[in-house]
Amino acid sequence: MTGRALPRWVLVLAAGGALFVILPVVAMALRVDWPNFLALVTSGSARAALLLSLRTSLAATLLCVVFGIPMALVLARTSFRGQGLLRSLVLLPLVLPPVVGGLALLYTFGRRGLLGGSLNAAGIDIAFSTAAVVLSQAFVALPFLVLSLEGALRTAGTRYEVIGATLGAGPWTVLRRITVPLVLPALVSGTVLSFARALGEFGATLTFAGSLEGTTRTLPLEIYLQRETDPDAAVALSLLLVVIALVVVGIAHRVRPLGSGAVARGVRAGG
């Protein structure tokens, strides 16, 4: 092992923690009906669920990026009364049980919800639609992006931004040439985390959007349903979800060094 020496008990606890996470995945892989794995994960309903999951998670991630970046900027770069409270509220979906999130969305966007009447009058009915799935996913995934980006913004500090501004750069130029490149790694990892969280979303979707093949039945909901009659299919699909999550996280880690380079370039350009 390279790196700084750590007390042995740290290594023991770390190994214990790692095993705690890895063993269940191994146990699941051992339960997979490998000879039929391909058939199980490429069945019609499995394909429909996977495609729907990827589509909705991408849309939800896009919503997170569009709204999450400005939210993180406001939280990190401004100060106003009640900001602490606002931050806690924005991060609420992180700690809420997803079912509770689903109920909250139902009471907001549902047919009898706070905005349901107005939406209905506008001819928008999201009950049992794919849009409801995207909303559920974005709701639970948004805090991941805001949290990691705000942390990075605070760590990066305002030094370069101030220098850029004194050299005559406008707010948009500072944001584009200094701030965003500085926090690009965090932005990438936050985006990937949001995507992964959206992909795994279950409780809010179940409560708010329903479950219909090709429309609202995402991969986690398909797994939940298959488990009733076909545990083999459920296990195979679960493993598929794990593999997708690993690939996504792996991509994020590969992107990081590039991001760091961009930061250096951004800093040079900004300075």
Binding site: R112, A127, F128, L206, T216, L221
Partner: peptide
């Protein structure tokens, strides 16, 4: 149906909430 739920409780929930 607009939704095929995995439990009868979820079906009932969609009715009591007025979604369905």
């Amino acid at each position: 149906p607009v939704s095929e739920e995995a439990s009868v409780t979820d079906v009932l929930g969609k009715i009591t909430s007025g979604q369905a």
